[in-house]
Design a protein around this nucleic acid. Sequence first.
DNA 1: ATTAGTGGTGTTTTT
DNA 2: CACCACTAAT
Length: 671
Amino acid sequence: MSLRISNMLPVSTRGMWIGTFHGICNRLLRLHFKDANLPKSFQILDSNDQISIIKRVIKLNKIDIEKISPKQIQYHINSAKDNGLRSNQIDEVDEFTQHVNKVYRIYQSICDVEGLVDFGELILRTYELFKNNNALREHYQNRFKYLLVDEFQDTNQLQYNWLRLLVSKSNSIFAVGDDDQSIYGFRGARSDNLSDFKRDFNVSNTVKLEQNYRSQGHILEAANALIKNNVNRLGKDLWTSSGQGEQIKVLEAPSESEEANSIVREIKRLESHDHKLEDIAIFYRSNAQSRPLEQALFRAGIAYKVYGGLRFFERQEIKHALAYLRLILNPQDHSSFLRIINFPPRGIGSKSIEKINKISEIKKCSLFEALSFTDLSGKAAASIKAFSALFDKLRVDTEQKSLAFIIETVINDSGLVSHYENDKDGFDRIENLKELINAGAMFEIEEEQALSKDELDPISTESDSGQSNSLFSFLDHASLEAGETQAVDGAKALQLMTVHAAKGLEFQTVFLTGLEEGLFPHENSLADFSGLEEERRLMYVAVTRAKKNLNISFAQSRMIHGQTRWNISSRFLDEIPQKNISRKTDHQLSQSHINHSIKNQIIHGSKKSDHQFSAGKIVEHQKFGMGIILQCEGQGPEARVQINFENHGVKWLILNFAKLTLDASHDKNIN
DNA sequence: ATTAGTGGTGTTTTT
DNA sequence: CACCACTAAT
């Protein structure tokens, strides 16, 4: 974003604050940590860190909530914060809320003591800071003459209130948003903020942007037709002056691997017609779907780049390494301490950890300091001494050293590398650890360049004593911008990403994959109407990323959670007008596939089944209607079939009881 | 007392 | 399939 802006503007962008809400709040909190009542070295928690603290709270306080999962509690905490609510502001209306809120309260006190800040807290803290500190608020109201907010439909209630605090008579605000592209409802985004904005900020004139400069006719018509099915929207109709262009190609494949192969063939064809690889993108609904695509691309020797997914900084080996780094910097960091106290295994088990915990409570000191008081006998005592000594040594060895050197020293001396050397699938992990050294070196170079370029803002942090300041900002960077690091060098490669990650981007050619009921729209979103509408907006976002060529595909069968599932095509496909589509129903391919799988059953299956039903056949049930057979089991009176019904989902039925009729037309297809 | 191995469970999207 | 909690083996 920063780059795009500086390329478009005749003036320098130095001095502008450009970033996400989270990024800007982090910057503010770093500058005013004292006023925000935070330790100087506060660390940012990611989703997993948050979960492990919640688990800790549940265990330590023996809260009796067997039925409530840590994830549910996490959701409660995050959505409370997204709405600007502290635990004491929540009505404990029922037992559930009471339990969950208790965890929230204790969780927050742990974070406060240990100097930990989760994503919601970044914004909430800054909000409270502005609210309670008039001088500071006025300073920033004058500092930022113009506030510009992009993707306004993705703001949540707290971010909205945050903006209201920052806007005064001395500055002005400008917002751009598209309610049809609101796809972050699950994390508290309110597209209603768009209409509230008009009211609360006295907007005198609204500009509707309906001319689209990106996509050609067929693509745009499809997008318009799709989104019209949503009831809850402000309403707009996009138009283009760039001609009809090509129809959308729709491909039906027998399996996910066939789908991937067809896409690879098409990409090769495009390449030979002078399409650039970096102008092509493949989208999918969930990260897990990237695998078969990657396999096919790898085999075909096509360079590709996966965005997001298992983020580099979220891998366990990287998190272990970072925990060592954090603990060097901040011995108070209990989460990091617990992560590595016995990793790699060094003979300090749960019992020892419990003792350390007790001592830290009695002596009111950190877990780390408690190590020196813990008197245990024999092996454990020796292990604990060794662990303390390791850290004393690490602190001395890494003082005033380069980031790369610090990281290298830590991953070697901690025993992480040698641990993974003995692990049978530890090779990749060691590669990643080496990559972390590189990332550190790169980060330091970039930081120097940035520093020499802008010595801007009047308020600046006082320089740090002792430990390297760049280690500090590196750790910060690691938790907040986890995904970005790998994305930079996306040159000359095909781009793979989730539809969520694709928002705001555009490509000449887009392959949109996995258009199947249950996947897209995702089955977990179908429970309520608003969920389905959000999925449809997601589809709308995906379609409108394509400039010239859009390819949509789906597979008849797909491995999900280790089981083959037979899906029907997505309802979203049916919502696109036929005139905008050219169907490449690979019928021959699909028939041969089904024949093949039936033959396989006859040859490999120990005995031929004594009924006429088999996987892949279309059947009709008196009550459930049409469906496709997923698998068969058993013989005679015990024979059962699993069927995915068009309108009733997946069910197991006993053949003797279920009156099933084979769909004759489909039967003819097979033979 | 620790660890490795086993069996049961739940699976979207992200700052 | 991947992760966790629990159990058996060291």
